[in-house]
Design a protein around this nucleic acid. Structure first.
Lengths: 133, 133
DNA sequence: ATAAATTAGAGTAAAATAGTCTTAATTAGA
DNA sequence: TCTAATTAAGACTATTTTACTCTAATTTAT
């Protein structure tokens, strides 16, 4: 699977946050979405670190969008949520056991690069606004 | 990761098989590719079941292509190798814990369906011949 | 002060991936 | 017909990734 639950939760939470006037707390979001609070909190922290959300601590704190929905790419959200670009197939993880020895030089490498580019481009072009239209 | 090692090994093996006159045995392939024989054998069996390869038992047996490279889609290879269509995100696995309760009706579902279709189409249009050109 | 929140990081449970191993079945060729 | 080479099938195991949990600390509106 290309995307994990972290991306799913991030997108579901962002849809609520963008439609809210006030900061939305992790607990409130976890209740509305019926998902684990601790896990969601960690994901939201990641989004805040990447500058997608602003986090406000203390009473009446929570998370708010920093930019407009139309200025946030799905790619940036997914990268923040997953901690890395979603990979079609990650040869680099297997560098020590790669049959070919040298990463990027095997017979299927051109195919994998093309495929990955297609995925990257698709996610970069889409914005948060687009997917909820 | 969208693709697993099963797909990688399947594609690498098919490239050798399609360039061979005689049937190629699992052991020989595993040596040429420096990958585990038992694992590769299982993957090749899957390809044979799906009608991509023909398997010949006994001495001097092995695997040969059933169709021309240009008639074998990458999608069919990946499905045979992985045992399922490579999924961008599989909500159905989480049906009992889906926040939304009803699969396919959440706010991110349209996005996921569009994304999955892009991936499916890309893999269906590509043939084994294409990726080694 | 205090209660409501995020932050940080270690730790754990479940699931998927990536194999292994053993035994059986088949078949070309001596 | 015997034998060595090969695929077939399925149970089993190890490793890695995913999906969390838990605790303690920090911040801040009231």
């Amino acid at each position: 699977m290309l995307l994990t639950r972290a991306s799913e939760y991030a997108l579901l939470a962002l849809d609520i946050i963008r439609n809210s006037e006030k900061p939305k707390g992790a607990e409130q979001l976890s209740i509305e979405l019926s998902i684990p609070k601790s896990f969601l909190a960690k994901i939201l922290q990641g989004l805040a670190k990447e500058g997608i959300l602003e986090s406000k601590k203390g009473a009446h704190g929570g998370f708010v969008l920093v930019k407009k929905s139309s200025e946030i790419s799905i790619a940036s959200i997914v990268i923040a949520a997953e901690g890395k670009t979603p990979a079609v197939f990650d040869c680099s993880q297997y560098s020590d056991t790669c049959p070919n020895g040298v990463i990027g030089s095997c017979t299927i490498s051109p195919f994998l690069v093309t495929f990955q580019n297609k995925v990257d481009t698709f996610l970069q072009k889409l914005t948060l606004e687009d997917i909820f239209k």
